[in-house]
Write a protein that binds this DNA or RNA. Structure first.
Lengths: 258, 258
DNA sequence: GAGTGGTCTAGACCACTGA
DNA sequence: CAGTGGTCTAGACCACTCA
Protein backbone atom coordinates (compact mmCIF):
# COMPACT_ATOMS: atom_id res chain seq x y z
CA UNK A 1 0.00 0.00 0.00
CA UNK A 2 2.90 2.28 -0.65
CA UNK A 3 2.83 5.55 1.29
CA UNK A 4 -0.20 7.08 2.90
CA UNK A 5 -3.32 7.42 0.75
CA UNK A 6 -2.43 10.95 -0.34
CA UNK A 7 -4.69 13.80 0.74
CA UNK A 8 -8.26 12.82 0.40
CA UNK A 9 -9.06 10.12 2.87
CA UNK A 10 -12.44 11.67 2.06
CA UNK A 11 -15.46 12.11 4.24
CA UNK A 12 -15.81 8.47 5.16
CA UNK A 13 -15.52 9.10 8.84
CA UNK A 14 -17.86 12.08 8.74
CA UNK A 15 -20.41 10.02 10.64
CA UNK A 16 -22.68 9.10 7.82
CA UNK A 17 -24.93 6.26 8.89
CA UNK A 18 -23.11 3.62 7.00
CA UNK A 19 -19.96 5.12 5.59
CA UNK A 20 -20.03 5.62 1.86
CA UNK A 21 -18.58 2.75 -0.10
CA UNK A 22 -15.05 3.60 -1.13
CA UNK A 23 -15.88 3.28 -4.81
CA UNK A 24 -18.58 5.92 -4.45
CA UNK A 25 -16.05 8.24 -2.84
CA UNK A 26 -13.71 7.72 -5.71
CA UNK A 27 -16.44 8.09 -8.30
CA UNK A 28 -17.54 11.37 -6.75
CA UNK A 29 -14.02 12.69 -6.52
CA UNK A 30 -13.50 12.13 -10.23
CA UNK A 31 -16.90 13.53 -11.06
CA UNK A 32 -16.00 16.64 -9.10
CA UNK A 33 -12.79 17.06 -11.04
CA UNK A 34 -14.74 16.87 -14.26
CA UNK A 35 -17.49 19.20 -13.09
CA UNK A 36 -15.04 21.79 -11.84
CA UNK A 37 -13.46 21.98 -15.24
CA UNK A 38 -10.14 20.66 -14.02
CA UNK A 39 -10.65 17.74 -16.37
CA UNK A 40 -12.11 18.65 -19.72
CA UNK A 41 -13.66 16.47 -22.42
CA UNK A 42 -10.97 14.46 -24.13
CA UNK A 43 -8.58 14.64 -21.19
CA UNK A 44 -7.07 11.42 -20.02
CA UNK A 45 -7.68 10.54 -16.41
CA UNK A 46 -5.13 8.66 -14.30
CA UNK A 47 -4.91 4.93 -14.93
CA UNK A 48 -6.35 2.38 -12.56
CA UNK A 49 -3.01 1.60 -11.01
CA UNK A 50 -2.30 5.26 -10.30
CA UNK A 51 -5.66 5.60 -8.63
CA UNK A 52 -4.98 2.46 -6.63
CA UNK A 53 -1.93 4.23 -5.22
CA UNK A 54 -3.67 7.56 -4.79
CA UNK A 55 -6.62 6.19 -2.83
CA UNK A 56 -5.01 3.21 -1.20
CA UNK A 57 -7.61 0.74 -2.41
CA UNK A 58 -7.49 -2.37 -4.52
CA UNK A 59 -7.75 -2.27 -8.25
CA UNK A 60 -11.22 -3.86 -8.28
CA UNK A 61 -12.51 -0.94 -6.26
CA UNK A 62 -11.07 1.63 -8.60
CA UNK A 63 -12.41 -0.37 -11.49
CA UNK A 64 -15.90 -0.31 -10.04
CA UNK A 65 -15.76 3.45 -9.69
CA UNK A 66 -14.53 4.00 -13.22
CA UNK A 67 -16.87 1.45 -14.75
CA UNK A 68 -19.85 3.15 -13.22
CA UNK A 69 -18.68 6.49 -14.57
CA UNK A 70 -18.34 4.90 -17.97
CA UNK A 71 -21.81 3.37 -17.67
CA UNK A 72 -23.34 6.79 -17.15
CA UNK A 73 -21.44 8.17 -20.09
CA UNK A 74 -19.11 10.51 -18.25
CA UNK A 75 -16.04 8.53 -19.24
CA UNK A 76 -14.93 6.60 -22.26
CA UNK A 77 -12.65 3.71 -21.40
CA UNK A 78 -10.38 2.18 -23.97
CA UNK A 79 -8.50 -0.97 -23.25
CA UNK A 80 -4.87 -0.47 -24.01
CA UNK A 81 -4.91 3.29 -23.96
CA UNK A 82 -6.76 4.71 -20.97
CA UNK A 83 -9.86 6.44 -19.68
CA UNK A 84 -10.95 9.76 -21.10
CA UNK A 85 -13.51 12.36 -20.17
CA UNK A 86 -16.36 11.95 -22.63
CA UNK A 87 -17.44 14.91 -24.70
CA UNK A 88 -21.12 15.29 -24.00
CA UNK A 89 -22.81 14.72 -27.33
CA UNK A 90 -26.28 14.63 -25.94
CA UNK A 91 -28.35 15.15 -22.91
CA UNK A 92 -29.63 11.80 -21.86
CA UNK A 93 -32.63 11.51 -19.71
CA UNK A 94 -34.53 8.59 -18.39
CA UNK A 95 -38.19 8.72 -19.12
CA UNK A 96 -40.27 6.56 -16.87
CA UNK A 97 -43.54 5.75 -18.53
CA UNK A 98 -45.99 4.31 -16.07
CA UNK A 99 -48.98 2.18 -16.45
CA UNK A 100 -51.94 4.51 -16.95
CA UNK A 101 -53.97 3.20 -14.05
CA UNK A 102 -50.99 3.63 -11.77
CA UNK A 103 -50.31 7.09 -13.10
CA UNK A 104 -53.83 8.33 -12.50
CA UNK A 105 -54.11 6.86 -9.05
CA UNK A 106 -50.69 8.19 -8.09
CA UNK A 107 -52.02 11.68 -8.74
CA UNK A 108 -54.83 11.04 -6.31
CA UNK A 109 -57.58 10.82 -8.88
CA UNK A 110 -60.04 8.05 -9.42
CA UNK A 111 -59.29 5.78 -12.35
CA UNK A 112 -61.83 4.34 -14.74
CA UNK A 113 -61.64 3.06 -18.28
CA UNK A 114 -63.97 1.96 -21.03
CA UNK A 115 -63.33 -0.29 -23.98
CA UNK A 116 -64.57 1.50 -27.06
CA UNK A 117 -63.97 -1.31 -29.48
CA UNK A 118 -62.27 -4.65 -29.68
CA UNK A 119 -61.69 -6.49 -32.92
CA UNK A 120 -59.73 -9.57 -33.78
CA UNK A 121 -58.74 -9.67 -37.41
CA UNK A 122 -55.97 -10.19 -39.91
CA UNK A 123 -53.50 -7.38 -39.71
CA UNK A 124 -53.81 -4.72 -42.37
CA UNK A 125 -50.71 -3.62 -44.23
CA UNK A 126 -50.53 -0.55 -42.06
CA UNK A 127 -50.81 -2.58 -38.89
CA UNK A 128 -48.22 -5.06 -40.07
CA UNK A 129 -45.89 -2.13 -40.52
CA UNK A 130 -46.60 -0.75 -37.07
CA UNK A 131 -46.11 -4.08 -35.39
CA UNK A 132 -43.44 -5.28 -37.78
CA UNK A 133 -45.01 -8.68 -38.15
CA UNK A 134 -45.11 -10.67 -41.35
CA UNK A 135 -48.08 -11.18 -43.65
CA UNK A 136 -50.83 -13.49 -42.45
CA UNK A 137 -50.42 -12.34 -38.86
CA UNK A 138 -53.57 -11.52 -37.01
CA UNK A 139 -54.04 -8.93 -34.36
CA UNK A 140 -56.42 -7.89 -31.66
CA UNK A 141 -57.19 -4.22 -32.11
CA UNK A 142 -58.46 -2.35 -29.09
CA UNK A 143 -59.59 1.19 -28.52
CA UNK A 144 -59.78 2.25 -24.90
CA UNK A 145 -60.62 5.52 -23.22
CA UNK A 146 -59.15 6.19 -19.79
CA UNK A 147 -60.60 8.61 -17.28
CA UNK A 148 -59.23 10.46 -14.29
CA UNK A 149 -62.01 11.60 -11.98
CA UNK A 150 -64.45 11.17 -14.85
CA UNK A 151 -62.51 13.50 -17.09
CA UNK A 152 -61.12 11.89 -20.26
CA UNK A 153 -57.44 11.35 -19.57
CA UNK A 154 -56.02 9.54 -22.57
CA UNK A 155 -57.09 7.59 -25.62
CA UNK A 156 -55.44 4.27 -26.24
CA UNK A 157 -55.26 2.54 -29.57
CA UNK A 158 -53.62 -0.83 -29.22
CA UNK A 159 -52.65 -3.78 -31.38
CA UNK A 160 -51.78 -7.07 -29.78
CA UNK A 161 -49.90 -9.78 -31.62
CA UNK A 162 -52.31 -12.68 -31.33
CA UNK A 163 -49.72 -15.25 -32.33
CA UNK A 164 -47.74 -14.43 -29.20
CA UNK A 165 -50.58 -13.72 -26.80
CA UNK A 166 -53.55 -15.84 -27.84
CA UNK A 167 -55.16 -15.55 -24.41
CA UNK A 168 -55.83 -11.92 -25.17
CA UNK A 169 -58.65 -13.03 -27.47
CA UNK A 170 -60.65 -14.39 -24.57
CA UNK A 171 -60.22 -11.30 -22.45
CA UNK A 172 -62.84 -8.59 -22.22
CA UNK A 173 -60.63 -6.00 -20.55
CA UNK A 174 -63.46 -4.39 -18.71
CA UNK A 175 -62.04 -5.10 -15.29
CA UNK A 176 -58.43 -4.39 -16.14
CA UNK A 177 -57.20 -2.32 -19.07
CA UNK A 178 -55.12 -4.20 -21.64
CA UNK A 179 -51.91 -2.33 -20.87
CA UNK A 180 -51.96 -3.31 -17.23
CA UNK A 181 -52.85 -6.88 -18.09
CA UNK A 182 -50.11 -7.20 -20.69
CA UNK A 183 -47.49 -5.67 -18.43
CA UNK A 184 -48.13 -8.38 -15.86
CA UNK A 185 -48.60 -11.09 -18.42
CA UNK A 186 -45.74 -10.66 -20.85
CA UNK A 187 -42.30 -9.46 -19.90
CA UNK A 188 -40.73 -7.29 -22.56
CA UNK A 189 -37.15 -7.18 -23.65
CA UNK A 190 -37.22 -4.16 -25.89
CA UNK A 191 -39.39 -1.13 -26.31
CA UNK A 192 -39.37 1.77 -28.68
CA UNK A 193 -41.04 5.04 -27.95
CA UNK A 194 -41.91 7.89 -30.26
CA UNK A 195 -43.21 11.12 -28.91
CA UNK A 196 -44.76 13.87 -30.94
CA UNK A 197 -47.37 16.55 -31.00
CA UNK A 198 -50.50 16.19 -33.11
CA UNK A 199 -53.67 18.15 -33.65
CA UNK A 200 -56.81 16.48 -32.43
CA UNK A 201 -58.98 15.05 -35.19
CA UNK A 202 -62.69 15.63 -34.89
CA UNK A 203 -63.14 12.18 -33.42
CA UNK A 204 -60.26 12.50 -30.99
CA UNK A 205 -61.46 15.92 -29.89
CA UNK A 206 -64.93 14.57 -29.19
CA UNK A 207 -63.63 11.63 -27.19
CA UNK A 208 -61.22 13.72 -25.15
CA UNK A 209 -63.60 16.60 -24.71
CA UNK A 210 -61.37 19.06 -26.55
CA UNK A 211 -61.67 21.64 -29.27
CA UNK A 212 -60.96 20.31 -32.73
CA UNK A 213 -57.27 20.77 -33.60
CA UNK A 214 -56.26 21.12 -29.97
CA UNK A 215 -52.63 20.15 -29.45
CA UNK A 216 -52.21 16.62 -28.15
CA UNK A 217 -49.20 14.70 -26.99
CA UNK A 218 -48.93 11.40 -28.79
CA UNK A 219 -46.81 8.56 -27.48
CA UNK A 220 -46.33 5.49 -29.63
CA UNK A 221 -44.75 2.46 -28.15
CA UNK A 222 -43.85 -0.86 -29.71
CA UNK A 223 -42.80 -3.62 -27.38
CA UNK A 224 -40.90 -6.77 -28.24
CA UNK A 225 -40.10 -9.96 -26.47
CA UNK A 226 -36.74 -11.23 -27.71
CA UNK A 227 -37.33 -9.86 -31.18
CA UNK A 228 -40.99 -10.82 -31.52
CA UNK A 229 -43.38 -7.91 -31.44
CA UNK A 230 -45.82 -8.12 -28.54
CA UNK A 231 -47.91 -5.03 -28.79
CA UNK A 232 -48.05 -1.59 -30.27
CA UNK A 233 -49.87 1.21 -28.58
CA UNK A 234 -50.70 4.77 -29.46
CA UNK A 235 -51.62 7.05 -26.59
CA UNK A 236 -53.12 10.47 -27.18
CA UNK A 237 -53.08 12.86 -24.25
CA UNK A 238 -54.66 16.28 -24.19
CA UNK A 239 -51.69 18.62 -24.49
CA UNK A 240 -52.82 20.97 -21.79
CA UNK A 241 -53.57 18.26 -19.27
CA UNK A 242 -50.47 16.17 -19.45
CA UNK A 243 -46.74 16.45 -19.49
CA UNK A 244 -43.88 14.03 -19.34
CA UNK A 245 -41.20 14.91 -16.88
CA UNK A 246 -37.84 13.36 -16.28
CA UNK A 247 -35.00 14.29 -14.05
CA UNK A 248 -31.57 12.89 -14.56
CA UNK A 249 -28.19 13.12 -13.00
CA UNK A 250 -25.37 11.10 -14.53
CA UNK A 251 -24.09 10.16 -11.11
CA UNK A 252 -27.03 8.57 -9.40
CA UNK A 253 -29.83 7.16 -11.48
CA UNK A 254 -32.76 9.34 -10.50
CA UNK A 255 -35.94 9.96 -12.35
CA UNK A 256 -39.41 11.15 -11.68
CA UNK A 257 -42.35 11.10 -13.99
CA UNK A 258 -45.83 12.53 -13.98
CA UNK B 1 -15.00 -25.80 -6.71
CA UNK B 2 -17.21 -28.68 -5.69
CA UNK B 3 -18.34 -30.90 -8.55
CA UNK B 4 -18.44 -30.03 -12.20
CA UNK B 5 -20.09 -26.72 -13.14
CA UNK B 6 -23.49 -28.32 -13.70
CA UNK B 7 -24.96 -28.32 -17.17
CA UNK B 8 -24.55 -24.99 -18.81
CA UNK B 9 -20.92 -24.36 -19.47
CA UNK B 10 -22.74 -22.06 -21.89
CA UNK B 11 -21.74 -20.98 -25.35
CA UNK B 12 -18.37 -19.63 -24.38
CA UNK B 13 -16.52 -21.87 -26.74
CA UNK B 14 -18.95 -21.31 -29.57
CA UNK B 15 -16.27 -19.38 -31.42
CA UNK B 16 -17.49 -15.93 -30.73
CA UNK B 17 -14.67 -13.48 -31.39
CA UNK B 18 -13.88 -12.90 -27.79
CA UNK B 19 -15.94 -15.24 -25.67
CA UNK B 20 -18.69 -13.57 -23.73
CA UNK B 21 -17.74 -12.62 -20.22
CA UNK B 22 -19.09 -15.18 -17.80
CA UNK B 23 -21.16 -12.59 -15.99
CA UNK B 24 -22.95 -11.72 -19.21
CA UNK B 25 -23.74 -15.40 -19.71
CA UNK B 26 -25.20 -15.58 -16.27
CA UNK B 27 -27.10 -12.35 -16.65
CA UNK B 28 -28.64 -13.53 -19.88
CA UNK B 29 -29.54 -16.90 -18.44
CA UNK B 30 -31.45 -15.25 -15.64
CA UNK B 31 -33.04 -12.76 -17.98
CA UNK B 32 -34.20 -15.64 -20.12
CA UNK B 33 -35.78 -17.34 -17.14
CA UNK B 34 -37.66 -14.17 -16.37
CA UNK B 35 -38.69 -13.54 -19.95
CA UNK B 36 -39.92 -17.07 -20.44
CA UNK B 37 -42.25 -16.69 -17.50
CA UNK B 38 -40.48 -19.36 -15.49
CA UNK B 39 -39.71 -16.66 -12.95
CA UNK B 40 -42.54 -14.25 -12.33
CA UNK B 41 -42.53 -10.87 -10.62
CA UNK B 42 -42.10 -11.29 -6.90
CA UNK B 43 -40.39 -14.66 -7.23
CA UNK B 44 -37.19 -15.14 -5.37
CA UNK B 45 -34.21 -16.09 -7.46
CA UNK B 46 -31.42 -18.36 -6.19
CA UNK B 47 -28.96 -16.73 -3.82
CA UNK B 48 -25.47 -15.79 -4.91
CA UNK B 49 -23.91 -18.84 -3.32
CA UNK B 50 -26.31 -21.19 -5.11
CA UNK B 51 -25.49 -19.53 -8.40
CA UNK B 52 -21.80 -19.81 -7.61
CA UNK B 53 -22.31 -23.57 -7.41
CA UNK B 54 -24.59 -23.74 -10.40
CA UNK B 55 -22.27 -21.88 -12.74
CA UNK B 56 -18.95 -22.76 -11.22
CA UNK B 57 -17.77 -19.18 -10.92
CA UNK B 58 -16.70 -17.02 -8.04
CA UNK B 59 -19.13 -15.00 -6.02
CA UNK B 60 -17.87 -11.67 -7.43
CA UNK B 61 -18.84 -12.82 -10.89
CA UNK B 62 -22.34 -13.80 -9.86
CA UNK B 63 -22.60 -10.54 -7.99
CA UNK B 64 -21.70 -8.58 -11.08
CA UNK B 65 -24.39 -10.33 -13.08
CA UNK B 66 -27.06 -9.76 -10.46
CA UNK B 67 -26.03 -6.19 -9.77
CA UNK B 68 -26.35 -5.30 -13.41
CA UNK B 69 -29.80 -6.86 -13.52
CA UNK B 70 -30.74 -4.83 -10.48
CA UNK B 71 -29.34 -1.69 -12.09
CA UNK B 72 -31.64 -2.12 -15.07
CA UNK B 73 -34.58 -2.68 -12.81
CA UNK B 74 -35.24 -6.32 -13.58
CA UNK B 75 -34.36 -7.44 -10.07
CA UNK B 76 -34.81 -6.04 -6.62
CA UNK B 77 -32.04 -7.09 -4.27
CA UNK B 78 -32.50 -6.98 -0.54
CA UNK B 79 -29.61 -7.55 1.76
CA UNK B 80 -30.52 -10.16 4.28
CA UNK B 81 -33.38 -11.65 2.35
CA UNK B 82 -32.59 -12.26 -1.27
CA UNK B 83 -33.09 -11.18 -4.87
CA UNK B 84 -36.54 -10.94 -6.36
CA UNK B 85 -37.94 -10.44 -9.82
CA UNK B 86 -39.15 -6.86 -9.96
CA UNK B 87 -42.73 -6.18 -10.86
CA UNK B 88 -42.50 -3.81 -13.78
CA UNK B 89 -44.15 -0.64 -12.57
CA UNK B 90 -43.12 1.42 -15.51
CA UNK B 91 -41.61 1.34 -18.91
CA UNK B 92 -38.34 3.15 -18.68
CA UNK B 93 -36.76 4.55 -21.72
CA UNK B 94 -33.67 6.55 -22.28
CA UNK B 95 -34.25 9.70 -24.20
CA UNK B 96 -31.17 11.09 -25.82
CA UNK B 97 -31.57 14.76 -26.48
CA UNK B 98 -28.91 16.01 -28.83
CA UNK B 99 -27.49 19.35 -29.45
CA UNK B 100 -29.62 20.99 -32.13
CA UNK B 101 -26.81 21.66 -34.54
CA UNK B 102 -25.70 18.05 -34.26
CA UNK B 103 -29.24 16.82 -34.69
CA UNK B 104 -29.84 18.77 -37.87
CA UNK B 105 -26.54 17.87 -39.43
CA UNK B 106 -26.98 14.22 -38.51
CA UNK B 107 -30.11 14.19 -40.65
CA UNK B 108 -28.09 15.44 -43.60
CA UNK B 109 -29.53 18.92 -43.66
CA UNK B 110 -27.70 22.19 -43.54
CA UNK B 111 -27.75 23.95 -40.19
CA UNK B 112 -28.13 27.65 -39.63
CA UNK B 113 -29.34 29.77 -36.75
CA UNK B 114 -30.22 33.34 -36.01
CA UNK B 115 -30.30 35.18 -32.72
CA UNK B 116 -33.63 36.94 -32.51
CA UNK B 117 -32.94 38.77 -29.29
CA UNK B 118 -30.44 38.86 -26.48
CA UNK B 119 -31.04 40.74 -23.26
CA UNK B 120 -29.15 40.83 -19.99
CA UNK B 121 -31.35 41.89 -17.14
CA UNK B 122 -32.49 41.17 -13.63
CA UNK B 123 -34.55 38.03 -13.57
CA UNK B 124 -38.28 38.54 -13.45
CA UNK B 125 -40.31 36.64 -10.89
CA UNK B 126 -41.36 34.20 -13.57
CA UNK B 127 -37.80 33.66 -14.69
CA UNK B 128 -36.60 33.20 -11.15
CA UNK B 129 -39.16 30.47 -10.81
CA UNK B 130 -38.08 28.77 -14.04
CA UNK B 131 -34.44 28.87 -13.12
CA UNK B 132 -34.99 28.44 -9.41
CA UNK B 133 -32.56 31.19 -8.53
CA UNK B 134 -33.02 33.63 -5.68
CA UNK B 135 -34.02 37.27 -5.92
CA UNK B 136 -31.49 39.73 -7.26
CA UNK B 137 -30.15 37.18 -9.72
CA UNK B 138 -29.62 38.37 -13.23
CA UNK B 139 -30.00 36.43 -16.40
CA UNK B 140 -29.12 36.55 -20.03
CA UNK B 141 -32.29 35.94 -22.02
CA UNK B 142 -31.86 34.70 -25.56
CA UNK B 143 -34.28 33.91 -28.33
CA UNK B 144 -32.85 31.87 -31.16
CA UNK B 145 -34.36 30.41 -34.29
CA UNK B 146 -32.73 27.31 -35.76
CA UNK B 147 -33.06 26.25 -39.36
CA UNK B 148 -32.63 22.99 -41.23
CA UNK B 149 -32.08 23.59 -44.93
CA UNK B 150 -33.55 27.06 -44.51
CA UNK B 151 -36.77 25.73 -43.06
CA UNK B 152 -37.48 26.84 -39.49
CA UNK B 153 -36.63 23.85 -37.31
CA UNK B 154 -37.08 24.94 -33.74
CA UNK B 155 -37.47 28.03 -31.60
CA UNK B 156 -35.26 28.35 -28.59
CA UNK B 157 -35.99 30.54 -25.61
CA UNK B 158 -33.14 30.43 -23.17
CA UNK B 159 -32.17 31.89 -19.82
CA UNK B 160 -28.59 31.71 -18.67
CA UNK B 161 -27.63 32.22 -15.04
CA UNK B 162 -25.18 35.09 -15.34
CA UNK B 163 -23.80 34.58 -11.85
CA UNK B 164 -22.50 31.17 -12.89
CA UNK B 165 -21.54 31.92 -16.49
CA UNK B 166 -20.53 35.58 -16.69
CA UNK B 167 -18.61 35.03 -19.93
CA UNK B 168 -21.93 34.49 -21.65
CA UNK B 169 -22.51 38.25 -21.49
CA UNK B 170 -19.64 38.91 -23.85
CA UNK B 171 -20.71 36.31 -26.37
CA UNK B 172 -22.69 37.19 -29.46
CA UNK B 173 -23.68 33.61 -30.34
CA UNK B 174 -23.78 34.28 -34.02
CA UNK B 175 -21.09 31.77 -34.85
CA UNK B 176 -22.19 29.13 -32.43
CA UNK B 177 -25.63 28.79 -30.87
CA UNK B 178 -25.77 29.20 -27.08
CA UNK B 179 -26.75 25.57 -26.44
CA UNK B 180 -23.71 24.22 -28.21
CA UNK B 181 -21.44 26.74 -26.52
CA UNK B 182 -22.81 25.99 -23.06
CA UNK B 183 -22.59 22.25 -23.52
CA UNK B 184 -18.88 22.56 -24.16
CA UNK B 185 -18.36 25.24 -21.58
CA UNK B 186 -20.22 24.03 -18.51
CA UNK B 187 -20.55 20.43 -17.49
CA UNK B 188 -23.91 19.65 -15.96
CA UNK B 189 -24.69 17.35 -13.10
CA UNK B 190 -28.45 17.34 -13.24
CA UNK B 191 -31.08 18.04 -15.82
CA UNK B 192 -34.82 18.05 -15.75
CA UNK B 193 -36.92 17.70 -18.85
CA UNK B 194 -40.59 18.38 -19.37
CA UNK B 195 -42.25 17.46 -22.58
CA UNK B 196 -45.67 18.57 -23.65
CA UNK B 197 -47.81 19.57 -26.57
CA UNK B 198 -48.85 23.16 -27.06
CA UNK B 199 -50.73 25.14 -29.69
CA UNK B 200 -48.67 27.64 -31.59
CA UNK B 201 -49.26 31.24 -30.58
CA UNK B 202 -49.54 33.78 -33.37
CA UNK B 203 -45.92 34.76 -32.89
CA UNK B 204 -44.66 31.19 -32.70
CA UNK B 205 -46.65 30.24 -35.77
CA UNK B 206 -45.16 33.13 -37.73
CA UNK B 207 -41.61 32.30 -36.70
CA UNK B 208 -41.97 28.60 -37.44
CA UNK B 209 -43.94 29.11 -40.60
CA UNK B 210 -47.01 27.31 -39.28
CA UNK B 211 -50.75 27.87 -39.09
CA UNK B 212 -51.83 29.51 -35.88
CA UNK B 213 -52.74 26.90 -33.24
CA UNK B 214 -50.76 24.18 -35.00
CA UNK B 215 -49.66 21.49 -32.57
CA UNK B 216 -46.09 21.92 -31.37
CA UNK B 217 -43.85 19.77 -29.25
CA UNK B 218 -42.41 21.73 -26.39
CA UNK B 219 -39.38 20.57 -24.47
CA UNK B 220 -38.33 22.45 -21.38
CA UNK B 221 -35.02 21.70 -19.80
CA UNK B 222 -33.41 23.07 -16.69
CA UNK B 223 -29.80 22.19 -16.12
CA UNK B 224 -27.88 22.37 -12.86
CA UNK B 225 -24.28 22.13 -11.88
CA UNK B 226 -24.07 20.63 -8.40
CA UNK B 227 -27.30 22.26 -7.32
CA UNK B 228 -26.75 25.65 -8.96
CA UNK B 229 -28.97 26.33 -11.95
CA UNK B 230 -27.01 26.86 -15.14
CA UNK B 231 -29.58 27.39 -17.82
CA UNK B 232 -33.19 26.89 -18.63
CA UNK B 233 -34.33 26.38 -22.17
CA UNK B 234 -37.65 26.05 -23.88
CA UNK B 235 -37.64 24.46 -27.31
CA UNK B 236 -40.69 24.58 -29.55
CA UNK B 237 -40.71 22.17 -32.47
CA UNK B 238 -43.35 22.02 -35.17
CA UNK B 239 -45.35 18.93 -34.24
CA UNK B 240 -45.50 17.57 -37.72
CA UNK B 241 -41.80 17.98 -38.41
CA UNK B 242 -40.27 16.49 -35.33
CA UNK B 243 -40.49 13.52 -33.09
CA UNK B 244 -38.50 12.15 -30.22
CA UNK B 245 -37.64 8.51 -30.45
CA UNK B 246 -36.08 6.23 -27.94
CA UNK B 247 -35.37 2.55 -27.96
CA UNK B 248 -34.61 0.68 -24.84
CA UNK B 249 -33.79 -2.83 -23.79
CA UNK B 250 -33.19 -3.52 -20.13
CA UNK B 251 -30.30 -5.81 -20.95
CA UNK B 252 -28.00 -3.70 -23.05
CA UNK B 253 -28.30 0.04 -22.83
CA UNK B 254 -29.34 1.03 -26.34
CA UNK B 255 -31.00 4.16 -27.48
CA UNK B 256 -31.56 6.08 -30.62
CA UNK B 257 -32.94 9.53 -31.02
CA UNK B 258 -33.98 11.76 -33.86
C1' DG C 1 7.21 -4.58 -24.61
C1' DA C 2 5.27 -1.73 -21.21
C1' DG C 3 1.02 -0.01 -19.96
C1' DT C 4 -3.89 -0.13 -20.28
C1' DG C 5 -8.53 -1.77 -19.12
C1' DG C 6 -11.73 -6.34 -18.81
C1' DT C 7 -12.41 -10.08 -16.31
C1' DC C 8 -11.93 -13.50 -12.80
C1' DT C 9 -10.74 -15.89 -8.30
C1' DA C 10 -10.92 -17.33 -3.39
C1' DG C 11 -10.97 -15.67 0.17
C1' DA C 12 -12.79 -11.91 3.84
C1' DC C 13 -15.70 -8.73 6.99
C1' DC C 14 -19.83 -6.44 7.47
C1' DA C 15 -25.01 -4.98 7.91
C1' DC C 16 -29.01 -6.52 7.49
C1' DT C 17 -33.31 -9.69 7.44
C1' DG C 18 -35.97 -13.51 9.16
C1' DA C 19 -37.04 -17.48 11.80
C1' DC D 1 -28.88 -17.69 14.74
C1' DA D 2 -27.77 -18.91 9.76
C1' DG D 3 -28.43 -16.83 5.34
C1' DT D 4 -28.40 -12.88 2.46
C1' DG D 5 -26.35 -9.22 -0.31
C1' DG D 6 -22.62 -5.08 -0.27
C1' DT D 7 -18.15 -4.32 -0.30
C1' DC D 8 -13.29 -5.08 -0.42
C1' DT D 9 -8.61 -7.31 -1.19
C1' DA D 10 -4.36 -9.05 -3.47
C1' DG D 11 -3.40 -11.42 -6.43
C1' DA D 12 -3.96 -13.31 -11.65
C1' DC D 13 -4.38 -13.87 -16.96
C1' DC D 14 -5.81 -11.79 -21.00
C1' DA D 15 -6.58 -8.56 -25.22
C1' DC D 16 -5.58 -4.58 -26.64
C1' DT D 17 -2.86 -0.07 -27.85
C1' DC D 18 0.98 2.59 -28.64
C1' DA D 19 5.57 3.99 -28.93
Amino acid sequence: MASLPAGSVTARDAKTRTPLPRYVDIRRAIEARIMSGELKPGDRIPGELELVDAYGVSRMTVNKALSSLAATGLLIRRRGSGSFVASPKSQETVLEIHDIKFEVEASGRRYRHEVLSSTARAATADERARLAIGGGGSVLALAVRHFADNQPFVLEDRLINVALVPEALTMRFDEEPPGTWLLKRIPWTEAEHRIRAVSASAKTAALLDLRRNAACLMIERVTWQSGTPVTSVQLIYPGDRHELAARFSPAGKTSRSR
